[in-house]
């Protein structure tokens, strides 16, 4: 039987279609923000110029400097607050240590977190993958994988840092999960965007014996090296069981992501130490036990 040439044409077209779609899917899966940012760095001067010009119009002229000054002061207050919190924690910890282990360790000094302020120059809120561009980069000491917060919640994580600008992968993304806790009894869970509304998220993996009620406040948990603990994130609107084993709750977020203007970048001074500890192989604990038993 002779196969007509149109069969090969049709098959070729279908194969080409599958190939091109697979290529696009690969690009989406790679989430091309980094690649695009690298491409854009060559045109960064033009980009900076355009961003600054368009922002200048938005900043109502002289109000921009007033806002910037207030943001700077707020960042200083946050750093001071974090430092004082650390001192209190140290004091309480040292007191406990002295009670439990008289003649124990020396106390540490300084705060774990340091804050930098930055202005949002672009805020993409369209669909399921959202991000921001802020006007601080490596020249200002910003590096990748720093947390970004406001006093009303978590904004995201620095994904790429250029010299003067950085890209922040917004909390409103499918890959973003943060450690969170309920205020009343430090019950921990995982907070992630629900993908539906810019104002709500889902708190999941809460132990089923923990009472979760509408109106309970949700805070950052502090179980990661990226975000400081105890930042109020939102309030529980409704709760229920998910999968029968854990509870989950719908959280109304305090942060209005459409109104982001100034944000605070969180630098964890001890992140390198924490990261190096988390990279230790699991067998080390066994080795440690063997050492200890000798």
């Amino acid at each position: 039987m002779r196969i007509p040439p149109s069969f090969y044409n049709a098959t070729g077209r279908i194969l080409l279609f599958i190939l091109l779609e697979a290529f696009c899917l690969f690009l989406v899966a790679k989430n091309g923000i980094i690649e695009r940012f690298l491409l854009n760095t060559k045109a960064e001067h033009l980009r900076s110029f355009l961003l600054e010009k368009s922002e200048g119009v938005k900043n109502y002229f002289n109000l921009a400097s007033v806002n910037a000054d207030m943001a700077r002061q707020n960042a200083q207050l946050l750093s001071e607050n974090a430092r004082l919190g650390k001192i209190i924690e140290q004091y309480e910890g040292d007191s406990l240590l002295k009670r439990e282990f008289p003649g124990g360790r020396d106390s540490l000094s300084g705060s774990m977190f340091e804050y930098y302020w930055a202005k949002v120059v672009k805020n993409r809120l369209n669909g399921g993958h959202n991000y921001l561009v802020i006007n601080k980069g490596t020249d200002d000491g910003i590096t990748e994988d720093m947390g970004v917060v406001t006093t009303c919640g978590v904004v995201g994580i620095i994904r790429s840092a250029g010299r003067r600008y950085s890209i922040v992968l917004s909390f409103l993304n499918p890959t973003q999960n943060i450690s969170a806790k309920l205020g009343h009894d430090n019950a921990y869970g995982i907070l992630s965007w629900d993908g539906k509304s810019l104002h709500s998220a889902t708190l999941s993996d809460i132990q089923q014996h923990i009472p979760v009620n509408a109106g309970d406040t949700v805070y950052t948990g502090g179980h990661s090296a990226l975000f400081p603990p105890d930042i109020p994130v939102g309030v529980i609107r409704e709760a229920g069981f998910s999968g029968g084993m854990h509870k989950s709750a719908k959280v109304e977020l305090f942060q209005d992501y459409t109104l982001l203007d100034y944000v605070y970048i969180v630098k964890n001074r001890e992140k390198a130490v924490i990261d190096s500890l988390s990279l230790l192989p699991a067998t080390n604990y066994t080795d440690y036990k063997k050492e200890a038993s000798r």
Binding site: L25, V28, G32, I33, V133
Partner: peptide
């Protein structure tokens, strides 16, 4: 996708399907 800082591949995948 490259011009307006979207997710690279999203518009491309949808447009290829539209053309097909």
């Amino acid at each position: 996708d490259l011009s307006y800082d979207g997710v690279l591949g999203l518009n491309a995948a949808a447009l290829v399907a539209a053309a097909f």
